[in-house]
């Protein structure tokens, strides 16, 4: 403990402050790594996700400018020299909303270059543990949204789904729906992050930033749409067994924040929200 403190004093911790994007964090990893300063004295932070912007003593702060070439280099090295599985785990972790995600990924990678893919089994290691948890959370939330997402047919025939996930899931859930509804024109809209995935029948989907006003045109549903929404609400009511009513269990399985855009919790006949 004492030597650690001495070291800290004699050699300040370098904190790399990254932009909250995969590109930003991978650039941060590149820049921190390339100085060969010593992994022990490196920390990565994502100021956008931190609640307070306190600076600490005995630290040097560096602001990371995202550079696409650097990010691509890091990504390529991980895929080629470590494994695709480690790469995918890392990407999932980077979509999390935890502020320590960049730091955990950095220190997991330090181990990964030494142990290869088996680093993912070193669950007693705090950085690996953190990456594992973030990867699991992102995966679990995406799986839930595969079920909880609701599409509404707008008057112009486009299927629109809105959601507001905790982690940045848009690119994680869209491939599932692209595969499932290859013949549909649909949009999945992340209302919190103001971006959307657009899918045209027969084409690969594209993601871009959107504005609320821009999305308004897809939010008017047809009469036919309202009818099926009502059918679904009827089904949802009758399928429950009154003798077994258990709202607590229901809430455990489907926490309230998921229900924001779900048809079955909408008022009957309500057109929009």
């Amino acid at each position: 403990m004492q030597t650690e403190l001495e070291n800290a004093v004699s050699k300040p911790i370098r904190v790399y402050q990254c932009e909250n994007s995969i590109e930003g964090i991978l650039s941060g990893i590149y820049q921190a790594w390339s100085k060969a300063y010593g992994h022990k004295y490196i920390r990565l932070s994502v100021p956008d996700l931190e609640e307070s912007a306190n600076l600490e003593f005995f630290c040097e702060y560096f602001e990371v400018t995202p550079i696409p070439e650097q990010a691509e280099k890091v990504a390529g090295t991980i895929r080629n020299r470590i494994s695709v599985k480690v790469y995918e785990t890392m990407i999932h972790a980077l979509l999390s909303n935890r502020p320590d995600k960049a730091d955990a990924v950095y220190h997991m990678l330090v181990g990964a270059f030494r142990y290869g893919e088996s680093i993912l089994e070193h669950l007693a290691e705090p950085a690996v543990q953190a990456v594992f948890e973030m990867n699991r959370y992102v995966g679990n939330e995406a799986h839930l949204y595969n079920g909880f997402l609701r599409f509404e047919e707008s008057v112009n025939g486009v299927m629109l789904a809105r959601f507001q996930p905790i982690n940045d899931l848009l690119e994680v859930v869209t491939p599932h729906f692209e595969n499932r509804f290859s013949r549909e024109n649909f949009i999945i809209y992340d209302t919190g992050r103001q971006k959307a995935a657009f899918h045209r029948a027969g084409y690969p989907f594209v993601v871009r930033e959107v504005t609320e006003a821009e999305m308004q045109q897809f939010m008017h549903c047809s009469e036919r749409e309202l009818q099926f929404q009502q059918f679904w609400q009827t089904f949802f009511e009758t399928i429950a067994i009154a003798e077994r009513e258990n709202p607590k269990l229901q809430r455990n399985m489907m926490p309230l924040h998921y229900r924001k855009y779900m048809t079955e919790f909408k008022k009957r006949g309500e057109k929009n929200r």
Partner: peptide, 30 residues
């Protein structure tokens, strides 16, 4: 997996789409 002519696919783990007031999973139109 889905394909170009049909609608739909299937996932080995299964997907719950909602939970009724009794807390039971709704996955299929039963």
């Amino acid at each position: 997996a889905g394909n170009a002519t049909d609608i739909g696919n299937s996932v080995a783990t299964g997907i719950c789409h909602s939970f009724a007031a009794d807390g039971r999973c709704i996955s299929l139109l039963k």
